[in-house]
Write a protein that binds this DNA or RNA. Sequence first.
DNA 1: TCTGGGGTCCTAGGACCC
DNA 2: TCTGGGGTCCTAGGACCC
Length: 388
Amino acid sequence: MIAHVDMDCFFVAVERLKDSSLKGRPMAVGGDPAEGRSVVTSASYEAREFGVHAAMPMAVAVRRCPGLVVMPPDFDLYDQYHYKVKEVLNAFSPVVEMTSIDEGYMDLKGTERLWGPPMEAGERIHWAIKQATQLDCTIGIASTGTTAKIASEEAKPNGLLCLPAGTEAQFLAPLSVGAIPGVGGKTAALLESFGLEYIHQIASAGESLMVSTLGATGRWLWRTSVGLHERKVTPEWRRKSISKEVTFRTDTTDREYLTAVLHILMEKVCRQLRREKKKARTVSLKLRYEDFETIDRFQTLSQPDNRDPSLFSVAKDLMLSAITRRVAIRLIGVGLSNLTGSGHQTELFSEKRWLKEWNRLQAIDRTRRQFGFNSLLAGEAIHLANGQ
DNA sequence: TCTGGGGTCCTAGGACCC
DNA sequence: TCTGGGGTCCTAGGACCC
C-alpha cells in the first residue's frame, strides 16, 4: 500500500506557529498587495470561505475578503519544516518521495510487522508528524499512489482515509474528473464535451474507447478511473532544470534594462548550477508580453557549460531574436536544462583557460555566500545593483 | 479581477541518421 | 515517379502542480 501525506494549509500553518495570534483569522501567504502583481500562495480555510484561493491575484483576494491578513512567504522556514516532515516519514518507511515542499508519498510495503496494518500505520504517522512539527496533515492510503493522493485530497483537513484493496473504483466513482491529479480546467472541459463529468463515466466508457479518442492520455485516465494507474515512489529525485524569472512592477520595452535583468538572472542561475556541481547544455529564455502572450526560446550547445559569460551571451542572443513584437514586456526568465554532473575531468587538464575561469567563478561564488549576492556584479548588471 | 515563481510532463513537427 | 519506417534529438507550446 502507498500512503500520500499532505500538509494542511502548509504555509499558513507554519506562519501560525510563528505568531499564534493569526489563528482563526482569515489569512493568506503571498506578496504584498500594495506592491502590486502578487498572487495568493496559500489561503487559510477562513479566507477560503470568502472565495480566496491559491493563485488568485492578491488585489482580488483583498477585495473579496476585507481584513485579510497577508504574510510574506518565509521559504527558509517552510524548508525547515519540510525536512522535519521528511524525517518523520523516513522513520516509517525506507521508500519515501517528497514531491513538493508540503507533500510526499511513501511505500508501506514490508512495514506491517513494525507499524501494523495500513490504517494503524497511518494513525501513527499522523501522530508522529503532529508531535514533531505541531502541524496537521492529511493522509490517504491506497493500493496505488494516485488513488492515495485522491484519497488524501478528499479527507482534508486533518484526516486519514485508508481504502481497502478492491474498493478503489467504488471510492473514485462519484468524484468529478477534476479530482484526478493532472486533470485541470482545460482537460476537464474537454472531457465534459464528451459527456464525461464524473470518474465513473470514464470507467464505463472503457479503455479502448478512451484510447481511441484521447490516445495515451485516454489510457492513463481510464486506468486512473478504476484505480489501476501506478505511480512509483522514487526516493532519489534529480532536478532536470534550473530557472529564474521576474515579473516587472511596470512593463517595459527597454532592451538595455531587459539585458541587465537577464544578466542578473543568469548569474543567479549559474551560481546555483555550480553550487550543485552541474553543467547545462540547453539555455532557455522566456518572455511574457503585457497581453500575457508567453514565448520560450531554446538553444542547445554542443558542450555542457557552467560559466555565466558564455551562457549569458547565448541567452542574450535568444532574447534579442525573440523580441519581435512592439508590445511591452512584463516578465523575463532564463533557464538551464539538459543538466549533467559537472564532470570537468577532461577539460580540467586539456584547457588551462577554462580552469582559470572556473576558479574565478568559484571565488565569486564564495564571496557571495559570505557577503550576499549584490556584493559582486559584473558589467551590465551593475547599474541595477546601484539602486536604479 | 488581472493574473508569481519554481518546476514537470506531454505532444507534435522537423531534422537527421540508418 | 513516388517515394519506407524507426529512432533520437531539438524546439515550441501548452497543461498542470504546489
